[in-house]
C-alpha cells in the first residue's frame, strides 16, 4: 500500500519550500535576523530543521483554511446579498453539514498531531549520548556560562554597548565574550537564574528554555554548522530585558579544545581570547572570499 500520508506531506513540504525560500530570504545569514524576512531563521540544528519543516506544513494548512473561509465569505456576500437574493430562505439546520464541519477539523487536527508529538519528544528528551554539559545562568542583565565538565571558571557575557561596537558587530546582539561550542557536538544545556526569570533563546538552534531561580531546566542542541549565532533573552526580566543577548560561536573541535585548555588554565587567559578572535577573523576572511 502506498504511503499516502508521506506522499501528501512531501507534496505539502515542496509547496511550502517555495514560500519559505522566498520568505526566509535565500540571502539570510544564518544565526541572525534578516530585515524584511517573512519566515523562521535558517536552521543549524536537527531540531530546528524539524521545527522549520513542521512549521512549513502548518503554514500551508492554515493558509488553505483561511483562504477557504475567505472564499466562502466572499461567495455569500456576492451570491446572497439583498440585490442578488431578495427573498431569504428560512433553513436553520443541516445535520450532515454539521457533522462534516465537526469531523473534518478533527481529522485535520489529527493530521497535525502526527508530526507534532514526535517533534515535541525529540526536543524534550535529552539524548543518552551527550558530549558535555554547559550551564547558563540568567542575571539582571547578562548571562554567565560555566563548563562543569571542563573546569573552566564561570564567566560573564555582557552586551556590547552601542558606542563600543566594532565593525562586524551587531547592535543589541553582540556580546563581549561569547559562548563557545564545538561543531557537531551534542551539548546538554542547563539553564537557571540568579534573580528573576529569564529565558535562554537561540532561534537558529530552535532552543528556548526558561531560566528560573531555584530550578535547573535542561535542553540540548547539536549545531551542525560553524558560525556565529545570536539570540536574545525571551522572558521579561526588567529594565534591560532587551539588552542581554546571547552569542554562540560554533567552532571546529580543535579550536574548541585549544580555547578550553587555555581558559581552564587561566580564566583571564589572553591566549584563549586570541583563539576566539583569530577564529572570528579567519571566518570573516573566508566569508569575504565567498562573496
Amino acid at each position: 500500500m502506498p504511503d499516502l500520508y508521506g506522499e501528501a506531506m512531501r507534496f505539502l513540504t515542496a509547496l511550502a519550500l517555495t514560500w519559505t525560500t522566498f520568505a526566509a530570504g535565500a540571502f539570510a545569514t544564518p544565526g541572525q535576523p534578516t530585515d524584511g524576512a517573512l519566515g523562521l531563521q535558517p536552521a543549524v540544528t536537527p531540531i530546528m530543521e524539524d521545527i522549520v519543516s513542521f512549521h512549513n506544513i502548518l503554514l500551508v494548512i492554515i493558509t488553505v483554511i483561511t483562504l477557504f473561509v475567505m472564499g466562502l465569505l466572499i461567495y455569500v456576500m456576492i451570491r446572497y446579498n439583498r440585490k442578488a437574493n431578495p427573498t431569504p430562505s428560512k433553513f436553520s439546520h443541516n445535520t450532515l453539514l454539521e457533522v462534516v464541519w465537526t469531523a473534518v477539523p478533527v481529522l485535520i487536527l489529527i493530521g497535525i498531531a502526527i508530526p507534532s508529538f514526535p517533534l515535541l519528544y525529540k526536543q524534550d528528551v535529552i539524548p543518552a549520548e551527550i558530549d558535555f554539559t554547559l550551564k547558563a545562568t540568567g542575571n539582571q542583565w547578562n548571562w554567565s556560562y560555566e563548563y562543569p565538565d571542563h573546569e573552566v571558571a564561570e564567566y560573564f557575557s555582557n552586551m556590547v554597548e552601542d558606542e563600543d561596537l566594532e565593525p562586524g558587530q551587531l547592535r543589541n546582539l553582540s556580546v563581549d565574550y561569547p559562548l563557545v561550542v564545538p561543531v557537531n557536538a551534542t551539548v546538554r544545556l542547563q539553564v537557571t537564574a540568579s534573580d528573576v526569570i529569564h529565558n535562554w533563546a537561540m532561534p537558529a538552534f530552535g532552543t528556548k528554555m526558561d531560566a528560573i531561580p531555584g530550578r535547573i531546566n535542561e535542553a540540548w542542541f547539536q549545531a551542525t554548522q560553524e558560525g556565529v549565532y545570536y539570540g536574545q533573552c525571551s522572558e521579561l526580566c526588567g529594565l534591560r530585558h532587551a539588552f542581554m543577548p546571547i552569542e554562540v560561536h560554533v567552532v571546529p573541535q580543535d579550536v574548541f579544545d585549544a580555547w578550553i585548555a587555555a581558559k581552564a588554565e587561566d580564566e583571564y587567559s589572553e591566549a584563549a581570547d586570541a583563539i576566539i578572535a583569530e577564529y572570528s577573523a579567519a571566518r570573516e576572511t573566508r566569508l569575504a572570499q565567498l562573496d
Partner: peptide, 12 residues
C-alpha cells in the same frame, strides 16, 4: 517568526 522577542523597548 524571524525571532523578535516581545516586550522589547529596542530591537536589533
Amino acid at each position: 517568526l524571524n525571532g523578535m522577542p516581545r516586550r522589547y523597548v529596542d530591537y536589533p
